[in-house]
Simulated scan of single mutants.
Amino acid sequence: MPRSGLVTFLISVAFLIRCFQGQKTETSTSAESLMIDTTTESTKEEGAYIDMEIISIEVLPKIGNAVVLSWGKPLREYDLDWTYGVYYGENMQEALKEPKLTTKDLSAEVANLTFCTQYIFAVGVVDPASKRPHPARNVRTIGTLINELSPPEDLQVEFIPEKEPCLLIKWSASCPNIAEPLGYLVTVHEKNSPRMMLITHPFTTSVELAQTLRVVYGKSYDIKVATDVVGSQPTETVSFKVPHFLQPYKVRLTSRPEGAFVMYWREPFVPYFVDDFFYEVYVYPGRDLQGKAQIYATERPVFQFQGNQSEYTFMVGLRSGDGEFKSYLTDPVAINLLGENVTLSVS
């Protein structure tokens, strides 16, 4: 307790520089005496890590693999000369291990990221001389966009049996992250002919796309697709042979354990002027197409055959009831009891 008439001061001083707490000193001073009793208590601790809240983050749509982000700074510390570390990666462990770039600004642009990839971002105050990990908080996730030069994926061609034969060309965008509408070019070459068609698909942000094409019975076509951006890469070429008039198509064969073979096919477009029709299935033992075929009639696009050999070759065609119309046979397909089948070439 201070004595009467005396004044005792308790002075507490602490220095805070960049969140590092210095030594704390308490000094008791009496006005009556010049004696100073000083007690020093050192509590030097490593400063707490400051992580910043990302205010905005976006992908530059014209570039697709560059991210721009910005963060705030508390007003009470606005005059402090802080250095910020920008952390990012494809997973938490990679992203938060250490900052990949540092800046004194309140925003940054991260370029040359991988297209169509999800990234984790975080920002914190760092010491330029060290690379501290970022805690798993105040993180943001964002996905980069499609590479407009990349080839589309999963190109497929299907035949549509109509009065005027048609192909359905289907493909997928190389990435579902599409910020702005993108156009496509479908290139079609008719085999054994100088004829080439270039089809422009309308601009779209859709991921699954399709285009129809009028074709000629019996012709073969090479088809590929690319975006309409200069320098873009096309898909691999898909070749497709259009069935002949009245010809069945898309034959599929399976075998069963009891030794039976089952044949399926798609039915062609049959116009009104063709009389009642049926299908003729040709069955050859083994792969000998020079031998005598067994011919079976069926009205449905499925046929089951039970034989005594391990392998047979099958073909099918359409025939009108009055015999006036008879289609081309399908390509010969050989199949064994293991279900292994192969399309044979006919020269």
Rank of each mutant, 00 (worst) to 15 (best):
S4Q: 13
G5Q: 09
L6F: 12
L6W: 11
F9Q: 07
L10Y: 15
V13N: 10
C19Y: 08
C19N: 12
F20R: 13
Q21V: 13
Q21D: 08
T25C: 04
M35R: 08
D37S: 09
T39Q: 12
T43Q: 08
E46D: 12
G47Q: 07
A48H: 10
D51H: 09
E58Q: 12
I63F: 14
G64L: 02
V68D: 10
S70T: 15
P74I: 03
Y84R: 02
N91S: 15
E98T: 15
T103C: 05
T103R: 05
L113D: 03
T117S: 13
T117K: 15
F121A: 03
G124S: 10
V125F: 00
P128N: 06
A129Q: 13
R132V: 15
A136I: 08
R137F: 05
N138R: 13
V139H: 05
N147Y: 05
P152Q: 09
P165F: 00
L167A: 02
N177R: 14
A179G: 04
E180G: 00
G183T: 02
T187V: 13
V188W: 00
E190A: 08
R195A: 12
R214C: 04
V216P: 02
Y217K: 04
G218H: 00
K219E: 14
K219M: 11
A226E: 10
D228P: 02
Q233D: 07
T235Y: 01
E236K: 07
K241I: 01
V242K: 01
V251R: 02
V251P: 00
G259V: 01
F261Y: 07
F261N: 00
F261T: 01
M263Q: 06
W265V: 03
R266T: 14
V270W: 05
F273K: 04
D275G: 10
V281K: 00
V283Q: 05
Y284F: 14
G286Q: 04
L289H: 04
Q290E: 07
K292L: 14
I295H: 11
I295N: 10
Y296S: 10
A297M: 09
E299F: 07
R300A: 07
V302E: 15
E311V: 12
Y312C: 01
T313C: 08
L318E: 00
G323R: 06
K326T: 13
P332W: 03
V333D: 01
V333M: 09
V333H: 04
G339F: 12
S345H: 10
S347A: 11
